[in-house]
C-alpha cells in the first residue's frame, strides 16, 4: 500500500513539465466547460505561485497556454526578494546528530549536594571495587544497602545481563565486550532491533533541532531518556492542555480560565 502510494506521490510531487504533459491532452480531449474547471483547479493546486489573470476563465486553451508560458517564464513571485534568505537542502555537508543522555549516567548519586548546587556523583567502582560480587546474583529485588530505588521490571533480565560483573563502570554486551555507559543505545539495540531500526530512521524516540541537517544540527533522545532501563514501560502521565472550546463538554472539575469566554 505504501509502495503504490509512494509511486503515485513521486509522480505528483515531480516537476512541472510532467504535470503539464498530463493536463494538456485531457484539456484537448474533453474541451468542456467542466474539464476546464477541473484543469484550472489542478493548475492552481499544483502551481500555487501561478497568478491567474482575471479574464482567463473564458477559454480552456487560453488557460493552458498562459499557464505554460507562465511556468516557462518563471512565476513572478519567485523573483521577489523577501526578508529571509532561502536555504536549499541537499548539500553534502551535514551538521552532526548528537544523542542526548541524562547527566550523571554511569555514576552513583550520593544524595549530597555540592557547593555549586549540583548533585555529588561518584563512579560505580568507588564502592564496587571493594565489594565482592556474588557469583550468581540473580535476584535484583534484593539489594542489601544501595540501589533500594531500583526495582527491575524488564522481562526476565538480571543485573548482570547488562552490567559487567568485574567493571561496574562499564556495561556489557551479550558478546562479552564492554561498552561505555554513554553507548547504552547499542546495548538496548541487542534485543530491541525493530525499535532500534525505527530509531535510527528518526521514527522513534523524538528529537530536537533541524530536520534539514544541511542547515543545522540535531539532538536525539537516548533510549533511557524516556525508558528507565530497569523499568522501561512508559509510566502514565497526566495530559496537558485540555481543550476549552465554548460549548464543548468538559470533564467534571475542569474550569475555564476566563469566565467571560463562556459568558454569552
Amino acid at each position: 500500500m505504501s509502495r503504490t502510494k509512494l509511486q503515485k506521490n513521486k509522480r505528483i510531487w515531480g516537476q512541472q513539465p510532467i504535470y503539464f504533459a498530463q493536463v494538456r491532452p485531457a484539456a484537448i480531449h474533453f474541451g468542456t466547460f467542466f474539464s476546464m474547471i477541473a484543469n484550472y483547479k489542478a493548475i492552481l493546486v499544483k502551481n500555487s505561485h501561478f497568478r491567474p489573470l482575471k479574464t482567463i476563465h473564458l477559454l480552456n486553451f487560453f488557460v493552458i497556454a498562459v499557464a505554460i508560458l507562465d511556468s516557462a517564464c518563471g512565476a513572478p513571485d519567485d523573483t521577489i526578494v523577501r526578508n529571509v534568505a532561502v536555504a536549499s537542502p541537499g548539500t553534502t555537508e551535514l551538521y552532526p546528530e548528537t544523542i542526548f543522555l541524562p547527566p550523571g549516567i554511569g555514576t552513583y548519586a550520593t544524595g549530597k549536594i555540592l557547593a555549586d548546587g549540583t548533585a555529588e556523583t561518584i563512579p560505580c567502582m568507588t564502592c564496587h571495587a571493594t565489594i565482592p560480587t556474588a557469583k550468581t546474583q540473580t535476584n535484583p529485588m534484593d539489594p542489601k544497602q544501595f540501589h533500594q530505588d531500583i526495582s527491575l521490571v524488564h522481562g526476565n533480565l538480571e543485573c548482570l545481563s547488562c552490567h559487567d560483573r568485574e567493571n561496574r563502570n562499564a556495561l556489557r554486551l551479550a558478546s562479552g565486550s564492554l561498552l561505555e555507559f554513554r553507548e547504552t543505545v547499542q546495548l538496548c539495540a541487542q534485543c530491541h532491533g525493530l525499535q532500534y531500526r525505527d530509531y535510527t530512521h528518526g521514527a522513534h524516540g523524538g528529537m530536537n533541532g533541524y530536520w534539514d541537517r544541511s542547515t543545522g544540527e540535531r539532538t536525539k533522545n537516548g533510549c533511557i531518556v524516556c525508558h528507565s532501563p530497569h523499568n522501561p514501560k512508559i509510566q502514565p502521565v497526566v495530559p496537558v492542555l485540555v481543550p476549552n472550546d465554548r460549548f464543548l463538554d468538559h470533564p467534571m472539575g475542569e474550569t475555564t480560565t476566563d469566565s467571560t469566554y463562556n459568558g454569552h
Partner: peptide
C-alpha cells in the same frame, strides 16, 4: 473523546 483528563495512556 477529546477532553479526557485521566492519566494516559489509559
Amino acid at each position: 473523546n477529546t477532553t479526557y483528563t485521566h492519566p494516559v495512556p489509559a
